[in-house]
């Protein structure tokens, strides 16, 4: 079982290498180039394929610590997926709703979800942090973060 993890990883790496190679072979040529844009990528693709093979053949066992790292409970997986989902929503709405609102909501909701129980501190931190950053960037540094629905 232990050796298998490395071999599975090797297979994934090999797939990446093959996809990359396919794309490299489809790069359009440029007539005037001595060494065209596809030369190095092809080399990298074959190199990765070679390393994947080495990894596949590598008999070295994983250490206990390595194995331990991968033990994640179902609850934890859900935690990670929810946080990732919240980041996605943040990115999606950032330019529509604006920096201040989104950042305040994100910090508050995300901390809340991760079991932060001090709601008052949470509200204060999220509001003050986003207003401070926004004010700093937009007014002091003149680098405009999206205002969104707010009029300032």
């Amino acid at each position: 079982m232990l050796a298998k993890t490395n071999q599975k990883a090797a297979l994934v790496v090999a797939v990446i290498a093959i996809v990359y190679l396919l794309l490299s072979f489809n790069l359009p040529g440029y007539t005037n180039a001595l060494i065209d844009a596809d030369v190095i990528p092809k080399g990298l693709g074959f190199l990765l394929l070679f390393f994947a093979l080495l990894l596949y053949l590598d008999k070295k066992n994983e250490t206990e610590a390595d194995k331990e790292k991968r033990k994640i409970s179902k609850q934890h997986v859900i935690n990670l997926l929810v946080v990732a989902g919240m980041i996605l929503i943040y990115i999606f709405l950032l330019e529509m709703i604006g920096f201040v609102v989104m950042t305040t909501v994100f910090i508050f909701v995300c901390s809340l979800y991760l079991d932060y129980k001090h709601h008052v501190t949470n509200v204060i931190t999220s509001v003050v942090f986003s207003l401070a950053i926004y004010g700093l960037f937009n007014y002091l540094l003149k680098i405009n973060l999206p205002a969104g629905i707010l009029p300032f």
Binding site: F106, C110, S111, L114, T125, L145
Partner: peptide
Amino acid sequence: PRPLLISLVIIFSLIGVYAISFNTFDL
């Protein structure tokens, strides 16, 4: 506290990238 710190690090990284290109694709 950890939960708040996690949120702040995420936001820090997001602003960090946004301030380079002002483009959500990079996010």
